[in-house]
Design a protein around this nucleic acid. Structure first.
Lengths: 234, 234
DNA sequence: GTCTCCCCGATTGTGGACAATATTCTGCAT
DNA sequence: ATGCAGAATATTGTCCACAATCGGGGAGAC
């Protein structure tokens, strides 16, 4: 899976030089390589990525604006800790944006679009039956991103991509909930049906249903964690 | 009116030094001081704002990530032109975010919150009766931002603030539509009623109604402009 | 006239040097 | 041991010089 969706400052030239070290840092952060609140030292990173301090600095500014790191004057950058509350907020926003997008998609989906979505779902079913739920998360992301592409709503898609990168470290929790994947699959089916029927309202409802589930799951996970803390920040 | 709403990298220290030149540039851009697509030259701005080129550069990166300028490798920064289509997209996203926010607000509004909103509306009515529609836009913005504060939903508020700054140059068009202000006022009344009734669904509906109007108006304005172009990009 | 190529001024990209500031360490008094 | 002051180190902030690259304009061919 990749988190790379079109972003404002990211040109798509083949031998892109600028976004390079930004992308690299970004990936390392969203994939959880750094601890929350871990301090990021310009010189270290510059050496490790074999880039100048200027580049690292620019990347920091961007990541700060994006909400992935916090940049304090004279104190450098640390990876931003997203609170439980904020994670919920992010999911809430995600729900309404996905609704907006799926509504557009319902008005624009072509036959081949629908066929591709069908295939995505079939593949998910296959993996699930194989007892291989590990790839499910990737396929899930793919399914949604396919819808983004169909909707052709750059603004919403961009915001969603940003939000997603922020909430990434929470997402794995929602996956692990027992019995969730089976239900998720059914919800995907419903979304596809509504899209195939070119039904904007139906699609929107199906998407809301689907993602409200995710929000509830997240709420549940956070609650569970609160009563059995694994890791205490010092 | 101010566009300054809490933003990721913007600390609120009194003698803030860093965001300084970023804020200044940002204001100049959203207030329409530069033409769309106008090129921004580092050295010039550095002299004019009496800052180093590094600071300007950092500001550019931030503005690029925010979508206010576009930053091309080796070609510097130009202020980003938001296409008609994108303006519509932005408004669409704005609608759903405002719905989300007002829903939260309905669950949290206190008596004094409601009183403040009441006052905002009364003031709008007063100005309108005075035949002073010029201040209306500011009051309108104030009304909405008050709701943001009540909802206490940082994530959505941050995104809305960003979107708003991007669409600012379109907004004035929606204001000028004849008879619009009167209707807008009635819609505000409906929103307040629903909030006072602590009715999330009702608030959401009222807000959707209100802002769909704005979207339609915008669509109308764009259509009108298309048939009577004032300015042709070369 | 106009098209192409090349050169030059203008502008951006990058690294280093140094100043400003924060953080850690050390020694000392209690 | 503990806490504190101040030195020592580490890190960030800023400026500057120079390299890399771009855009425009002019010379020349047709």
């Amino acid at each position: 899976m990749e988190t790379s969706v079109a972003q404002p400052g990211t040109s798509e030239a083949t031998s892109e030089r600028r976004g390079d070290c930004y992308q690299q840092l970004r990936n390392e952060i969203v994939s959880g390589r750094f601890h929350p609140n871990e301090r990021l030292i310009e010189a270290d990173l510059a050496r490790r990525l074999s880039a100048g301090r200027s580049a690292i600095r620019a990347a920091f500014v961007r990541l700060d604006q994006e909400g992935l790191v916090v940049l304090e004057p004279n104190r450098g950058a640390r990876v931003r800790l997203v609170s439980d509350r904020e994670a919920l907020e992010i999911e809430e926003v995600r729900v309404v944006l996905e609704q907006l997008i799926v509504r557009h998609a319902a008005q624009r989906a072509s036959a081949v679009d629908l066929r591709d979505l069908r295939r995505s779902i079939d593949e998910m079913r296959r993996r699930l039956d194989e007892g291989n739920p590990m790839g499910y998360s990737e396929l899930n992301a793919e399914f949604h991103q396919r819808i983004w592409r169909i909707a052709d709503h750059e603004t919403a898609a961009r915001l969603l991509a940003n939000l997603k990168s922020q909430s990434l470290r929470f997402q794995y929790r929602t996956i692990l909930r027992p019995g969730r994947t089976e239900q998720s699959l059914r919800e995907h089916e419903r979304i596809l049906e509504a899209l195939a029927a070119r039904d904007p309202n139906g699609s929107e409802d199906a998407m809301r249903e689907h993602l409200s589930g995710v929000v509830e799951t997240l709420r549940w996970a956070i609650e569970a964690q609160r009563h059995q803390p694994i890791w205490l920040p010092r």
